[in-house]
């Protein structure tokens, strides 16, 4: 028995057939020991990658491939990065297993990466594309939080609009309690931008864009 139900596989295959354009590489950083969620994450991604010949899975080891890990800013596992045509990095990161509602986020992200664009309105894309300093967005979630995918998707779409400068992470709170603790997460989704701006709840995309811009303002300005 696989992890995905047959009917779900069929549905995903149809969605992928219809909506995928270019290739997508799922890069998974993993490790054998002391990582409860690495094995199931690899399993689900293996099943997923078998549902379209446009998708490939590339599994790396956090220690052995530490240079790669460094390059992608990976310091914990499991970590997932989606790469598009010619291994283009769109700034999309998942830390922790993309289960529950976050699996739908992963599916939607794969489709966007394959198309090289999201449905973020042009006006917002222009604002984001103009940013010339690094932005790091963290979105804390739990797999049972139905409001969380919208928050993660908003962050990932923003990263896609300017991947050179913007990286957006989903963080599964229950797998990384020390991080949840550090950022005082008691409710999800919780978004943190450049360690400066933070907010709870799923805001409309336009509002998240404004939050990103506000995180870049000079303090006191």
């Amino acid at each position: 028995m696989g992890m995905l139900k047959d009917e779900d596989k069929k549905y995903i295959r149809e969605q992928f057939d219809e909506k995928l354009k270019g290739p997508v590489k799922i890069l998974l950083f993993s490790q054998k020991l002391e990582c409860e969620y690495c094995q199931p994450t690899e399993e689900i991604l293996t099943e997923l990658s078998e549902l379209s010949d446009k998708i490939t899975l590339d599994v790396r080891n956090l220690q052995i491939d530490s240079d790669d890990a460094k390059q992608f800013g990976v310091d914990k596992v499991p970590a997932i990065i989606l790469l598009g045509e010619q291994d283009k990095d769109y700034g999309i990161r998942f830390f922790g297993i993309p289960s529950g509602y976050e699996f739908s986020t992963l599916l939607a992200d794969i489709i966007d990466v394959s198309n090289g664009k999201s449905d973020l309105p042009e006006k917002m894309v222009d604002k984001i594309a103009a940013i010339k300093t690094p932005v790091h967005i963290k979105v804390f979630v739990t797999p049972t939080c139905p409001y969380c995918p919208n928050a993660v998707r908003a962050a990932h779409k923003i990263a896609m609009a300017n991947p050179r400068y913007i990286k957006a992470q989903m963080i599964e709170s229950t797998e990384f309690p020390h991080l949840a603790n550090k950022y005082a997460v008691y409710g999800v989704p919780k978004t943190i931008i450049n360690e400066r701006v933070q907010f709870e709840g799923a805001m409309p995309e336009a509002a998240v864009v404004e939050q990103v811009l506000s995180a870049l303002e000079e303090p006191g300005a």
Binding site: D8, I12, S99, G100, T105, L107, I111
Partner: peptide, 14 residues
């Protein structure tokens, strides 16, 4: 451990 995977919600781009 048991996991569930929600497949709902791929975006309608157009």
């Amino acid at each position: 451990m048991e996991f569930s995977f929600s497949v709902t919600g791929p975006p309608k781009v157009d």
